[in-house]
Amino acid sequence: MNFLVLFVFAFFMYGPLLNTFMLAFANKYQAPHVLPLSFGFTWWKNVFAQSDLLQAFVNSFLVAALSTFFSMVICLPAAYAIARYHFKGRNLFLFSFLLSNAFPKIGLYTAIGIIFYKMQLMGTLTGVVLINILNTMIFMIWIPTGAFQNVYRQQEEAARDVGAGPIRTFFTITFPSALPAIIVAAMYTFLGALDESQGTLLIGFPQIKTMATAMYGIILDQAPMVGAIFALLLVLPAVLILWLCYKFFGKKSFLQQLFIK
């Protein structure tokens, strides 16, 4: 019985993945057949020959990298402030980041879209990066806030005491202690931005095309093999980054980093 449950679960979990994998390396695939008629790299060549798809690949990483970087620049000081200063409405402020994620996204984007039109940010890289930052704020605020709270204030005071200014104190004492958590937050941000399609489509289309938004077109216009290849290309960096984090922190502390105090 247990085995059966596990089997069903595994089937649902890995079935689509296997199918995608199979499709990506199929040369020929026709409807009544369960398995492809022949395997090979034909469609890979096809994908890499389409320059706009390649451009989407580059855009994806550009958007993800920029979003992560600016999200850190904006959110880390905020996270530090929330961790250190118990101002009025602090919890409400923290909670508000959840709210933006709780709203139906498309409604939020439409409202933002109107503002972006006025500011002429539609179809620009800046606009797309901004919309991605909005999405990732929750990770970049919540996780580092927890991490900064775990650094004792007196550790910072001790550094000030021996002669370090506030900025040096932050970078020599506070930041290194919170670094593992910040890396995890950056990872979430990066992967989240890589995956984001709704906002990017609404704000960036048609000028800025990422892999995630290109998917829509591919599903409609192209062979299923192209979609599968794209899916694999999207999964690849995620797996790579997760594996790196796993290696970097070790199993135990990596899992610990996923929880906020």
Partner: peptide
């Protein structure tokens, strides 16, 4: 003056050694 400008040094209750 902030602590870094003063010629005093404090030994804290919990020692506060830098773990790293």
């Amino acid at each position: 003056q902030p602590p870094e400008k003063r010629s005093t040094i404090m030994v804290f209750q919990g020692y506060n050694l830098w773990e790293r």
